[in-house]
Amino acid sequence: MTKKNYWRELWNYHELIYILSWRDIKIRYKQTVMGASWGIIRPLVTTIIFTVVFNRIAKLQNPSAAPYILMVSAGMLPWQFFASALGETSNSVIGNAGLISKVYFPRLIIPLSSIVTSLVDFMVAFVIIIAMMIWFQFAPGWQIILLPFFIMLLIASALGVGLFLTALNVKYRDFRHLIPFVIQVGLYVTPVAFSSKSIPAHWRIWYSINPMAGIVDGFRWCLLDDTLYWPGLIISIVITLFLLVAGLRYFRKMEKNFVDDI
């Protein structure tokens, strides 16, 4: 199939993306007492614990003006999305094995719908940080208008890595064990619970190879008027674009054999 047809076909099926993520969200809170409030409780409690551990116990400080808890939640916001998107996409094709072995649609629909599902959680977490900013009476700077760009960058990097992992997970189930581990480690190598300014200056450029480092910094820049480390951001953009293109190509190459490999 030519490239152009591929994307047109994907568009023809765009409703399927929404309905599959609608299904996943609907199912997730069936038979739960607290329902969707889980979407708020989880990130909120994690943020509080991180603040207590890193700020109160380990005595780390935020070099910028914002309260420590705000800094943590501005880091938690993109990280939670990234982590949940990786977790959801990487299992998405296997989880929908019954579907893809019986019906044809562009396979990319499945990881895309997982991204949309994670995006809904992201919206909920966004409400939390807005509420906190109001509570601390902390107004963002003019950079807030650039936030959509960083959200796009975040989605692109999650999708890029997610597509790789999805395709690999179909063939090699090792990734099922590897992914939770990577996410766990990733939380500590990404400046979520601390400021990236705590990194020694000569290491900082290497630290930026983790695309999420630049993205988290970007979120803090937009929301909390933090300073931005521009070289880090540029590296992050380049790496994200590379991951997205490579991830898409790899996924397209592998998707032909999904049903045979599953």
């Binding site: 399927l16 309905i19 199912i27 019986k102 019906v103």
Partner: peptide
């Protein structure tokens, strides 16, 4: 193609919800 009865039906969803889910999976618009 109908290779199976009720492909994509989800046990937890209602009949109404499954009509939409299944219909979109089989290529209908909402």
């Amino acid at each position: 193609s109908l290779l199976e009865v009720g492909t994509g039906f989800h046990q937890e969803l209602t009949g109404r919800e499954n009509i939409f889910l299944n219909g979109v999976i089989l290529g209908m618009s909402r």
